[in-house]
Design a protein around this nucleic acid. Structure first.
Lengths: 348, 348
DNA sequence: CTGAAAGCGCTTACAG
DNA sequence: CTGAAAGCGCTTACAG
């Protein structure tokens, strides 16, 4: 392969000048730059990332850590992030935790990341105190999406999970429901996702505001997946005296709930109303009412926030929306979408 | 950060020995290895990938190129691939083409990949003749999944797309359908995905075998997405004299079709039967009949095939299943799953 | 605006 | 089994 010396020789300049010209540094005359670019083009030259990184001390790489790339929210976030990084010339190193504890250790626990990437994006990834300490010691820039754990000095892009849950629950209350169940993630998990906790809190607050005491028998914990929603709903039905409505903590759980209800001979929404959170690609297909959030927008925004300081730009302080309070999370909007899965309960 | 010299000093050996010990090379005495590992551990040492790559000439990185990470098949493939690569200590560099032509150029057209990765995995990514030439010149090892374009010397993992389409169509024929529509990808696209073409071919073959002449009016081209399926079905209905069954080239299109049918006041399967291909996570929820394929298995197998030669292992020749003919694609099995979306047409 | 030279932190023949 | 030394291909002060 052609090296920088080849380009330098052909262009009649030093390798230092080639390096500067190719990176678009301002300290190169227009004429020289033209010659260098032409030479590089002619030789089909591409810089060696390894050499460039070793010499320059920057990796041009961002680590993106997600729980499961196959879930709607994470796939959509990664697609948006990849787009922004790609345009900025950054490589995207994908870490899919997939519930594998050893992977979490390898990714977060060592100096692994430090020498491998310039910055880290943690998507809905909760950290143990020990992980957090290790990560903080690396002094890497980073950003979090959808909380998980708050990392000091890292911006956070998210939605108002408590508010989302309140809106969903209130929608069911407004329709006349009183026995409203909630299916969500497992708070007993050692690494509790704050998303689950916040949505449960909003659900309870909305009930209390309506004068209803939350019934623990209507609150089932499971996983944030389709089958998790199915299992939670089956459990709910097993307990007898079924609810007239279910608020699922995400659309995938809501879809699982719809399956379980159908299999149990119950109709949606005639027998049981169902509402989720996300506005998943298939929510429309299934006629699922939901609280919509834009995963793509969260990914895009987080990627831009991450890249900005890397390019020497100041961290956005007052220009952008919602960034007025440095250190405060950037909260993106959500909205209720009413489809066919929610209706008034049948009169008894 | 600690460097290799620090470890060498603490262990009382040379940096060469540290390098060998840490990589598990056999030419290190057990006692020395123990000392080196202890020192590295104590100093929380992690090798610098940039330096290691530059000196060693290997990147420890695999590029994975997918059309759209948000589609079920690709997300599932990537998750499986990431698992195998992670375990083998490889980094996964994600390229999500997303239909952006400039990205395709940047990824494939230059020497970009050559210095950046040890190997390439192309998932359902068709190549222009010029791209193929450029890629071949790089002499990088690689593997393809789900065809796209056959790259010389690269193994290919896939399913029998023609057979899949024949099975789906025959299922509808067996139920008594005669007016069977097909919705699929756009063959006029400059970069035609062979998947589309093969599935269309199997559809036509099955019809002809049953003595039916394929009706071009029942064959609509669109995109491999939910909304693509919706649009294709709307077009189909606009043409009048609707079919009694639709074979969609993938489950996402089938789901879009179900939406369009519902919105048009048609019931599935009473008015129109629908069958797809994939066994998407939500196929069960929607009661969608389909031809199941394992995206995860394809990803896992392709990743293993790719890694094997990189570790000095010979390319699997006779041991594995379906690998008896070197150069021939590895064909993974598929199977018909009948759910509620397909039934006999109503008697007229 | 440009170049000579040092140095980034490893791995790899080579020699022993 | 181990070490001294060269070299991987760039970028970066430094000097001009």
């Amino acid at each position: 392969m052609t090296r920088i010396d080849d380009v330098a020789r052909l262009a009649g300049v030093s390798t230092a000048t080639v390096s500067r010209a190719l990176r678009g540094l301002p300290t190169v005359s227009a004429a020289t730059r033209r010659r260098v670019l032409a030479a590089a083009e002619q030789l089909d030259y591409a810089v060696s990332p390894s050499a460039s990184r070793l010499a320059g001390g920057r990796t041009g790489t961002v680590a993106v850590v997600v729980p499961r790339i196959t879930r709607w929210f994470f796939g959509t976030v990664v697609e948006a992030v990849e787009d922004v990084l790609q345009q900025a010339g950054y490589d995207l190193l994908l870490y899919n935790l997939g519930g594998r504890e050893q992977v979490r250790q390898r990714v977060l626990g060592t100096a692994n990341l430090h020498k491998r990437v310039d910055a880290v994006m943690l998507v809905a990834t909760p950290l143990r105190p020990a992980d957090l300490t290790a990560l903080t010691k690396l002094r890497l820039p980073g950003v979090t999406i959808s909380s998980g754990t708050v990392v000091p000095d890292w911006p956070c892009v998210r939605i108002d999970d408590v508010g989302v849950a309140r809106t969903a629950t209130r929608h069911l209350l407004d329709l006349g429901h009183r026995r409203i169940a909630h299916i969500s993630g497992d708070p007993h998990d050692e690494l509790a996702y704050t998303t689950h906790l916040d949505r449960r809190r909003g659900y309870r607050e909305a009930l209390r505001d309506a004068g209803i005491d939350p019934d623990p028998g209507l609150d089932v914990e499971s996983q944030f997946t389709i089958s998790g929603g199915t299992r939670a709903t089956e459990e709910l039905l097993r307990r007898g005296d079924p609810p007239t409505a279910i608020f699922a903590a995400c659309d995938e759980m809501a879809m699982g709930a719809m399956t379980a209800l159908r299999d149990a001979g119950l109709r949606v929404p005639q027998d049981v109303s169902v509402i989720g959170v996300d506005d998943h690609d298939l929510a429309g297909v299934l006629g699922l009412s939901t609280i919509a959030q834009s995963a793509a927008e969260q990914g895009r925004l987080a990627a831009r926030i991450l890249l900005d300081p890397l390019h020497g730009g100041a961290r956005p302080s007052s220009g952008g929306p919602c960034l007025d309070t440095p250190g405060a999370p950037v909260i993106l909007p959500t909205r209720l979408i009413v489809r066919e899965s929610t209706a008034a309960p049948r009169a008894h």
